[in-house]
Every structure is written in structure tokens, then in C-alpha cells.
Design a protein around this nucleic acid. Structure first.
Lengths: 409, 409
DNA sequence: ATCAGTAATTAACTTCGTCAAGAATTGAAT
DNA sequence: ATTCAATTCTTGACGAAGTTAATTACTGAT
């Protein structure tokens, strides 16, 4: 297969449009692609051909076709997910979580590695080992995987593959893409972890079809990834999506960020545990014990979680009032998830109460995500980077798409 | 002039790039345009020609040229602002404010009209009269003005020229563009008023050069227009930029929107006046009297304004934490402006305290805007609609611009 | 005067997509 | 059965829009 079919990436606008549409919108016939994209059907035929020849796309079996009746039946194009593989690794302060995915960013294999040190060199060495282990699982991986995506919390300069500042890892100005590329021999992308997860939802999850949506992560902290006008919001100073530091609590409580009343200072894991400890008079209570107490029905503990849910709901409402996303995907990890049932009702209620006007119509989707799925996000970034249309640099401010309406005299 | 030179709009990408760059970035030489845009200089020459021939662009006088020395001196292209005129009208519940502007959206003439009724027909009739009056001021206007922009508060569907819902006017589903076009004979655009002002800043004001910025309006209510990735954020449910309904006050006070602790419920004109009235024990105090009391140094009155400034600063910080805009333009009208000195220090302080990390680096620009400048915003929308590049419809989610970084084995 | 350096233009060419015609493939009508 | 209408896909000629490379235009310094 590979000898005959060289690797391929998108070059023209039509190619990017056609390929990403088949990739993200499942099997689609050529005419349907033409209709949705505005391209001529001739252009779709031409653009699809090299991808079919290179083994990335294929026509669906005739048996699976669906047609209303008259006319030549469509032969929908579908992705061949095994044509290329991708590695994604989520880097936390004490662990590496890695996955191999197919073109659809579906995880095929995973592996973990505990980190003793957060020093850059040590992490990169462990990363190379982890990647080697993952690629060794199947000869096809070694052969058809050329991209590695890394997801790191903190301020990441994706364009230059730099970690500008990662508080948990205590990294500053680390050229992680270059280091990882040298250590693994793969093409490397580096992106913020929440944004990576957002990209995964945008192309392969519940963000498909929405030109704007938000993803809210509930966990140790509260994070948020935003997609507006089909693009992830990067933030000009390396800051974006800091829903955790919206001051919904008025002047209380103080937050580690220096602000007051932050969502995270109320609904982060630390303040919740502290709250339950105070409520129960047990200063050594563990996270899980705090959750258990609430699940057992302790009113004081439940109240702490309800307050947290209230804060999260208000933060989400503030975000929705500013952006007007089509959907909000709520996700998170332990203990955010283990305790989610303790938040959920209050989140929904407070969101609905504070969302302005039609913003309350925004759909809330609860989507638990495992750690592997964060790593999957990293792989999704490398997939998107490879195939999305690189727009010509726009220097001037671009306008809206709408045309004027009305009659001319 | 006009007989020889037909009207022109941008058709190709190069034309839109060149024309809007000259329009928004002042006199620029062709090579400089090529450098900034990535186009070849040949393409710039070709794209500029029809605009020069049609009288929209011209080469700068040799005397105004500036060169470092050696080589052929550049002959920068500049806009000819009088080539075409635009009418912009801001519609409030009790007044129409109209302006004629040039291509740079600089107001050349203005006129007002009080409204007795907010009925659609009556407003449109008054609008037609106002436009006729404005166009009559100079024969050139009649001859070279073909576009009318309307700015309305509330939920506007710009693409279809519909006012979906405007609370102040009590309008629902009004096809305003069609009606106004029929009444005036002009091509009409309709846009939300805050977004219109945002467009004016984006192309002709302090947003030039920023691919993301926010505009905050302080007045009766608190509003916000957002530009992300060079595009105005529309909001999917007709809601966006509702910074006034971010709950920064915790659970107090209740807001007319049904929420609690909204910025607007603390810093809107009504709650400020109510607060000063309560503080001074005078239930009939006017807005201006409340401002005067604070200016005179009354501590209780000053405290009310300080609290308002605090709420606004927190709301702006919440917005900056979510978006990471490059700049924030603070603007407003009476009494927001007349009292701005009473807010300003507290806004800056609370913003700085709550902005997360590098978001605090975001520049705050205070830019008072008159009512005429809101009308100017409406004209700016019609200018942008006419000349900005209409992108091909993008159906699939588009990715980031960054390319992968690193080495390949 | 010549020359080096920068700006602008021109002409040949490339690329990418559209258009219009036709081939392919089906169900329904005669 | 055969024709027809409907729909999908393909093909090749064409055209629009941009690029590259060479040329012209203009300047200050040697």
C-alpha cells in the first residue's frame, strides 16, 4: 500500500474542503459535498481523486447506499481511518498519557508513564520511550505514523511549538516541539490541553456542525475552550478561556490568582474539599471522603457542592452571554466527574437563571472524558494541523460574510 | 467624474486585500502592501489599477513621499475619500441620528429627528425624510451615495436585514432593510448598534491592526462588541457581548433580566441613580443631580459610583479572561461619559486585580463617542459590507493557521 | 555618466476552479 | 423490452486570478 501510495496532505482549497468534510461529516456523496461547500461537483471529483488513489478515501460499498429512488445512486465517499496513524500525549506534572489513534482520532492503543521529575530533559526522554512503546504495538503504526501531538496545560505558542509558561510543570520558554521531534523523529505539534480537547470535539465530537461552541472542563480547576466562527480562540496574550477566574462570587472568596470570587476559588477541587472539611469539622478529610459524604446525603457537604455548581453555572452563563455559543459541552475528569451528579442540577438551574434571553436556548451536553481522551485531543490537533486549510495570511481586518440586502433605486 | 468612472466594489481576493488595506491603513506603497499581505507586487499593481481608474484610489503627491535614500521612491496609494459617500442612521426609541460620511467613515454632515412614535411605518417615513434632508446638503451626496447603514439596539439578523427583536422599539421580525430600501432607494444594511460601533473601530478607529479586541460601552446599560480572528462575533442565538449581564455581584442585586448581581444592575444608569437617591435620602433626584453630588464630593454618592466602576472593571476582566483581546476600547455616552471620571480609577483597579495573568497587559483605551459616532458606525457597516472580502462559505470547521513544527526523521 | 538599489510594470505561464456536455446508473412509464 | 426522466459522476475546454521573471522607472552615490 504505502509504496504505491505516498502520504498526502491538503494543498488546494477544494482538497481541504473535500477531505475535511468526508473526515468530519462521515460518508458523504460528492454532490452532497458540492452542495454543502459551494464547490462545483467537478471540483469535488477532481479533489477527491488523489485522496482515493493515496488510500485516504474510498467509495462506500454499494450495499450501504441509500437513495430515494430515481436516478443514479450516489456512491458516498468515506474515510479509510487506518491509512495513517497519529500519536497523542497529554503531559501532566506527574504522568504521561499516550494514545495511538486513527485518522478519525479514535484511540487504538494507549500507554502511561509516571514521571518522577518534571525537568524538561527527563520528560522528553520518557516521552520518547512512551512513543516507542506505543509504536511498537503494531508494525503498521511504525510504518504509517508520522505525527505526534502534545497537550500541555498552560500558555502554549502552537505556531512555534513553544511552551511559554506551564505553572504545573514549572516550564518557561521550552521549545518542546523541537526537542520532541528530535527525540522521536516525528512531526510534532504542541497545544494547550484544553484547546486540544476542544479541537477533538470540533472535528470528531459534539462540536461537529457548530461554527461556535464552548467546552467547559470541570476538574481540579475549571477551564474552557472556545470556538468562534469555526476557529479556536487563541487569546492574544496566551490567555483565553479562563472561565475559572470569572468573579461570580462577588468579593468572596479570595483566589490564588489574586482575584476574588473566582469560579475556581469556589468550585475547584481544593476549595470544595476545604469547604466540606470545615462543614464536617474534619481537617484531614480526603477528596473522595468529601464526595462520599455528599453522596451519603450529608446536608452540609451537599451544600458545598451545590454552591460549587452554582458558581460553575454562573460562569457558564457569563460566557454564553458574551459569546452566544451554539452549544456548551461540559466535561471533566476525576474528581470533577465522580462528583458531577452533585453539581449537575445546580449548574443547569443557575445557568438557566443567568443566561440572557435566547442564550438560555444553548444546548448543554454532558460528556465525560477520560484521560486518554485528553491525549486523543493532542492527536486531533496534529490531524487538524495536517489537513485543515491554511488560509492566506489576512493582514487587514476581515469583515462579515453577509451581503447587503435590499433594493437599489 | 462619475460618467467616466463607474462604481466599483471588490471582487477578487487581491482587490479586497489591496483596497481595504489602503482604506484602513492609510497611504501605503504597493510593495508595502505586497509585504504585509503576502501577495506578489504584480498582483497589487493589477488589483489597484481598476480602483485608481474608478477614482477610489490615487497615488500620493511626490512631495509627500518619504524615502530612506537610494532607489526609486515609492508612490504610496491613498484613498480618495470623496469618491463615494455613505449614510448612517442610529435609531433609538425616541430619535433618529443621521450622518453622511466619506469612504473613511468620517462624518461630513449630520441631522436629527425626534420620533413621536416607534411604530415601524412612522419610523421608516421619518427615516426617509431624514435621509433626503442629509442628501440634499450637497449635490455630490445625491450623486455618489448609494448605501445606507442602520444601527438598532437589540437582536438583528444582518444577513437578512431583519430586526428580530428590539426591546426599546418593541419591534419583532421587522424586515427593516427591505422597508428602508423601498423608502429611500438606497442599498441598506442593518446591524446591531454596538456591533456597528465595533466595526467602525475595527476599520477606522482604535481597532485597526488588532485581530482581536473588545469595545465596551458604558451608558444606560453596559454593552460589549467583540472582534476575534478579525471578525465580529455575532452570537448564534442573537445574543453576544452581553457583558452587562455577567453576575459579578454574587447574589445581589436582582436584575431586570431575571438574573442576579449583573454588572448592569449595579452600574447601569438606573441603579446608580437609585443608589444615590437612597444614599442622599432624596427619592426624586435627577441623573444629573446624582452626578453633580458625586462631583461635589459627597462621599456616599461617590461610593455608589465607585461600586459601579468596580462592577464594570470585574465584568471587563471576566471578558478579557475568556477572550484575551489585544485591546479594550471603553466608550459610552451621556451619562456614562459625563460621569466617567467617577468610574475610571475604580474600573482600572478592579480590572487589573481580576484580569488573569497576562490578560492584565491588555491595553485599556478610553474613547468617548458622541451620538453621531454611533450613526457613523452604521455607515461603517455599509462600507465594510461593500468592500470586505466575502469568503466562500465554509461548511466544515476550519482549523488554525499554524503549521506543524519540528523535524522529520 | 555610471552604477547600485528600490519600486512599479509587463508578459508569459501556472494553477485552480467553473461550465457545459456527456457517460453512468437507476426507477418508472409506455 | 424499451424509452424516458432523474440523478450522480466524469471529462475536457475554458477562464479567472495569481505567480515568476524580466523589464522599465526613478533615485542617490561614486
Amino acid at each position: 500500500m504505502t509504496a504505491m501510495h505516498p502520504r498526502l496532505t491538503t494543498t488546494t482549497r477544494a482538497e481541504a474542503t473535500v477531505f475535511t468534510m468526508v473526515l468530519t461529516q462521515g460518508p458523504v456523496s460528492r454532490v452532497e459535498i458540492a452542495r454543502r461547500s459551494g464547490l462545483s461537483s467537478a471540483a469535488v471529483t477532481k479533489a477527491a481523486r488523489p485522496f482515493i488513489e493515496a488510500g485516504y478515501l474510498a467509495e462506500l460499498e454499494a450495499t450501504e447506499r441509500t437513495g430515494p429512488g430515481a436516478g443514479r445512486p450516489a456512491s458516498p465517499l468515506t474515510i479509510r481511518p487506518d491509512r495513517e496513524f497519529f500519536t497523542g500525549v497529554k503531559i501532566t506534572d506527574d504522568e504521561l498519557i499516550g494514545v495511538i489513534t486513527d485518522l478519525r482520532a479514535q484511540p487504538l492503543a494507549s500507554a502511561h508513564r509516571r514521571l518522577e521529575t518534571s525537568g524538561v530533559e527527563g520528560v522528553v526522554a520518557q516521552l520518547a520511550e512512551l512513543v516507542a512503546e506505543l509504536l511498537a504495538a503494531d508494525p503498521a503504526y511504525r510504518e504509517r505514523c508520522h505525527s505526534l501531538g502534545l497537550a500541555v496545560s498552560g500558555d502554549v505558542d502552537k505556531a512555534h511549538g513553544m511552551v511559554r509558561y506551564s505553572p504545573f510543570l514549572s516550564w518557561r520558554q521550552v521549545p518542546l516541539a523541537r526537542l520532541a521531534a528530535a527525540a522521536t523523529g516525528l512531526t510534532v505539534t504542541v497545544e494547550n490541553d484544553v484547546k486540544s480537547l476542544t479541537v477533538a470535539e470540533q472535528w470528531f465530537g459534539d462540536g461537529v456542525g457548530a461554527s461556535s461552541f464552548a467546552l467547559v472542563t470541570v476538574g481540579m480547576g475549571i477551564g474552557c475552550g472556545l470556538v468562534v466562527n469555526d476557529r479556536v480562540v487563541a487569546g492574544s496574550h496566551g490567555v483565553a478561556g479562563e472561565i475559572g477566574h470569572i468573579p461570580v462570587g462577588g468579593d468572596e472568596p479570595p483566589c490564588h490568582c489574586g482575584g476574588r470570587g473566582c469560579v475556581e476559588a469556589i468550585a475547584g477541587t481544593a476549595p470544595i474539599v476545604a469547604g466540606v472539611r470545615a462543614a464536617l469539622g474534619d481537617p484531614t478529610l480526603s477528596v473522595n471522603a468529601a464526595i462520599d459524604a455528599a453522596h451519603a446525603g450529608n446536608p452540609a457537604a451537599r451544600e458545598v457542592f451545590a454552591r460549587a455548581g452554582h458558581a460553575i453555572g454562573l460562569g457558564m452563563a457569563a460566557m454564553a452571554n458574551l459569546f452566544g455559543p451554539e452549544r456548551i459541552i461540559v466535561t471533566g475528569d476525576v474528581p470533577g466527574l465522580a462528583a458531577y451528579d452533585l453539581f449537575e442540577e445546580q449548574i443547569n438551574r443557575s445557568f438557566a437563571a443567568q443566561a440572557f434571553g435566547a442564550a438560555a436556548d444553548c444546548r448543554l451536553l454532558l460528556r465525560p472524558r477520560t484521560f486518554e481522551q485528553w491525549a486523543r485531543g493532542a492527536a486531533a490537533v496534529s490531524i487538524q494541523t495536517l489537513f485543515s486549510r491554511e488560509e492566506a495570511p489576512v493582514v487587514t481586518s476581515a469583515g462579515d460574510r453577509a451581503r447587503p440586502h435590499g433594493m437599489r433605486a
